[in-house]
Deep mutational scan, measured.
Amino acid sequence: ERVRARYDYEAQNEDELSFKKGDIITVLEKDDGWWKGRNGKEGLFPSNYVEELE
């Protein structure tokens, strides 16, 4: 599954994923509120910062 970033997100910890608004992220795992994904790097990000691609 792929999602698009709705906002910029700056990683707060080294296991998190940074991205810019409009970036496409491949979702690897979904957990409550935090998803694991890849966009060149791999890490956790808040699920409310992304939207599913149509």
Score class of each variant (00 low, 15 high):
residue 1 E to I: 15
residue 1 E to Y: 12
residue 1 E to T: 14
residue 2 R to F: 11
residue 2 R to L: 13
residue 2 R to K: 14
residue 2 R to M: 13
residue 3 V to M: 11
residue 3 V to C: 10
residue 4 R to I: 13
residue 4 R to Y: 00
residue 4 R to E: 06
residue 4 R to L: 09
residue 5 A to I: 01
residue 5 A to F: 00
residue 6 R to Q: 09
residue 6 R to S: 09
residue 6 R to H: 06
residue 6 R to V: 14
residue 7 Y to D: 10
residue 7 Y to K: 12
residue 8 D to L: 00
residue 8 D to F: 00
residue 8 D to R: 00
residue 8 D to N: 07
residue 8 D to M: 00
residue 8 D to V: 00
residue 9 Y to Q: 05
residue 9 Y to K: 02
residue 9 Y to D: 04
residue 10 E to F: 11
residue 10 E to P: 03
residue 10 E to S: 10
residue 10 E to L: 10
residue 12 Q to S: 09
residue 12 Q to C: 10
residue 12 Q to L: 10
residue 12 Q to I: 09
residue 13 N to Q: 09
residue 13 N to L: 06
residue 13 N to V: 06
residue 14 E to K: 11
residue 14 E to S: 12
residue 14 E to W: 08
residue 14 E to Q: 11
residue 14 E to L: 09
residue 15 D to F: 15
residue 15 D to T: 12
residue 15 D to A: 13
residue 16 E to I: 00
residue 16 E to Y: 07
residue 16 E to V: 00
residue 16 E to C: 04
residue 17 L to W: 00
residue 17 L to N: 02
residue 17 L to H: 02
residue 18 S to G: 06
residue 18 S to I: 01
residue 18 S to K: 01
residue 19 F to A: 00
residue 19 F to H: 02
residue 19 F to P: 02
residue 19 F to G: 01
residue 19 F to S: 02
residue 20 K to E: 08
residue 20 K to W: 06
residue 20 K to S: 10
residue 21 K to Q: 11
residue 21 K to F: 04
residue 22 G to S: 05
residue 22 G to A: 03
residue 22 G to M: 04
residue 22 G to V: 02
residue 22 G to T: 02
residue 22 G to R: 01
residue 22 G to F: 01
residue 22 G to C: 08
residue 22 G to K: 02
residue 23 D to K: 01
residue 23 D to A: 07
residue 23 D to P: 00
residue 23 D to Y: 01
residue 23 D to G: 03
residue 23 D to C: 06
residue 23 D to E: 10
residue 23 D to L: 01
residue 24 I to D: 01
residue 24 I to P: 00
residue 24 I to Y: 10
residue 24 I to S: 02
residue 24 I to K: 03
residue 25 I to G: 01
residue 25 I to P: 01
residue 25 I to Q: 02
residue 25 I to S: 01
residue 26 T to I: 15
residue 26 T to H: 10
residue 26 T to S: 09
residue 27 V to R: 01
residue 28 L to G: 03
residue 28 L to R: 02
residue 28 L to D: 05
residue 28 L to V: 10
residue 29 E to K: 09
residue 29 E to S: 15
residue 29 E to V: 11
residue 29 E to C: 14
residue 29 E to R: 08
residue 29 E to G: 12
residue 30 K to Q: 07
residue 30 K to N: 04
residue 30 K to Y: 07
residue 30 K to M: 07
residue 30 K to D: 04
residue 31 D to L: 15
residue 31 D to C: 15
residue 31 D to W: 15
residue 31 D to A: 15
residue 31 D to H: 15
residue 32 D to M: 06
residue 32 D to T: 09
residue 32 D to V: 07
residue 32 D to P: 07
residue 32 D to K: 11
residue 33 G to F: 15
residue 33 G to N: 14
residue 33 G to T: 11
residue 33 G to H: 15
residue 33 G to L: 12
residue 34 W to K: 07
residue 35 W to K: 00
residue 35 W to I: 09
residue 35 W to G: 06
residue 35 W to S: 06
residue 35 W to D: 05
residue 35 W to E: 06
residue 36 K to Q: 07
residue 36 K to M: 12
residue 36 K to N: 06
residue 37 G to P: 04
residue 37 G to S: 01
residue 37 G to R: 00
residue 37 G to A: 00
residue 38 R to F: 15
residue 38 R to Y: 15
residue 38 R to P: 04
residue 39 N to Q: 09
residue 39 N to L: 15
residue 39 N to G: 10
residue 40 G to A: 09
residue 40 G to W: 12
residue 40 G to T: 11
residue 41 K to D: 09
residue 41 K to P: 08
residue 41 K to E: 10
residue 42 E to T: 15
residue 42 E to P: 06
residue 42 E to F: 07
residue 42 E to H: 06
residue 42 E to D: 10
residue 42 E to M: 11
residue 42 E to K: 06
residue 43 G to Q: 01
residue 43 G to Y: 00
residue 43 G to M: 02
residue 43 G to D: 02
residue 43 G to K: 01
residue 44 L to G: 07
residue 44 L to F: 15
residue 44 L to E: 02
residue 44 L to W: 15
residue 45 F to D: 02
residue 45 F to N: 02
residue 46 P to F: 03
residue 46 P to T: 01
residue 47 S to L: 07
residue 47 S to G: 09
residue 47 S to N: 09
residue 48 N to E: 14
residue 48 N to R: 12
residue 48 N to W: 15
residue 49 Y to T: 08
residue 49 Y to A: 13
residue 49 Y to M: 12
residue 50 V to G: 03
residue 50 V to Q: 02
residue 50 V to S: 03
residue 51 E to P: 03
residue 51 E to V: 07
residue 51 E to S: 06
residue 52 E to G: 12
residue 52 E to D: 14
residue 52 E to L: 13
residue 52 E to T: 13
residue 52 E to M: 13
residue 52 E to W: 11
residue 53 L to Y: 14
residue 53 L to C: 11
residue 53 L to W: 11
residue 53 L to F: 13
residue 54 E to D: 13
residue 54 E to Y: 11
residue 54 E to N: 13
residue 54 E to C: 13
residue 54 E to A: 13
